[in-house]
Amino acid sequence: MTLLLSVCVGSVSIPFSTTISVIWRGIWGLPLPQGTATAILLTSRLPRVLAVMLVGASLSLCGGAMQGLLKNPLADGSTLGVSSGASLGAVTAIAFGITIPKLPFAGTMVMAMVFAFCSLLIILGLAYKLDFSLSTNTIILIGVIFSMFASSVMSIIITFSGEKLRSITFWTMGSLQGASYTSVLVVLIALVLFGGIILLHARELNAFAVGEENARHVGVNVRRVKLIILIAVSGLIGVCVSIGGTIGFVGLVTPHMVRLLVGPNHKRLLPASVFGGGIFLMLSDLIARTLLNPKELPIGVVTSIIGAVAFVYIYGASRKGR
C-alpha cells in the first residue's frame, strides 16, 4: 500500500488506477499507455520508490542486527564506522571526478563500496590488534574514532572541492533522486545476499542480545558469528550509502519501533524490521518530495527530523512501560 501511495503521489499526481494498470502491464510486457504519466511512473518514480524501499529495509535490518549483536539499543549500521568510510569513498569519487569507463554512474558506488570494505578491514584489524577477543566495547570505540577520522578527511576534501561543493553536500544529506533500475537491482542483490546471512543468524543474535558471555556459555562461536554479522552489515551499509548517501536514523529508530510491536526475539524482529524500514523510508521520501513541492528536501533531513522526534517518544513510552 505504501509503495503504491508513494508511486501515485508526487509533484504530478497520478490516479491509483493508472498506476496499477501501468505497473501491471509493465510487469507482463503488455503494450503501455502513451503519455507523461507512464514516463514519470516507469522511468522516474517507480525505480526511485523501489530503491527507497530496499535501502530502508536494508538499513533497518542492519540496525536491528547491530543493536542485538552489540547489546546496545543506540547502535546502528553507522556505529561501526563503515558508513563514514563509505561516505568518504563516495565524496572522494565526486570531488575528484572518479568514474568507471562506460559506467559513469558507477564511480561513486564502487568507490563507496571499496572504502566501506577497507574501513571494515581497518576497524576489525585495529580491534583485533588491541583486543584479541574482539569485545563489543573495543569495536564500538574504534568505530566511533574511525568515524571521526573519516569525517575529518571528508571535511578536508570538501574544503578544496570548489564547484563540486553543492553536489557533495546534497549527496551527504542523502538522496535517492536519480535512482535507476540498476541501483534497485544492486540493492536487491545485496539485501538478498547480506540480509539473508543476517536473517540466518537470528538465534545467535538473540544470544548476543541476552549477553555475549551468556552466548559463549550456550555454545555460540562468538568470534566467528560476530565477524560474519559485521561483514554482512558493512557490505549492506556500503551498498546503501553508495546509492542513497548518508541516511540517518532509519537503522536506529525503526528496530526500536518494531521491537515495541513484535518483541526483542530476532526471529520476528529482523523480518519485521525489513518491512518497517521499507515503509518508514518510503513515507519519509514521500514527505521529502511533497512537503515543499516543487522543491525537494534531502531524504536524510526528513528521516533525521522524524526519527529524532519518534525516538524521544518511543524511549519515553518504553521507560513508562517497564
Partner: peptide, 16 residues
C-alpha cells in the same frame, strides 16, 4: 539483560 525477552526465550537459548 537489556531487552525484554521472556523467561522462556532466555531458557530456550540453552538448547542452542
Amino acid at each position: 539483560v537489556g531487552y525484554s525477552f521472556s523467561v522462556e526465550e532466555v531458557v530456550r537459548l540453552g538448547r542452542y
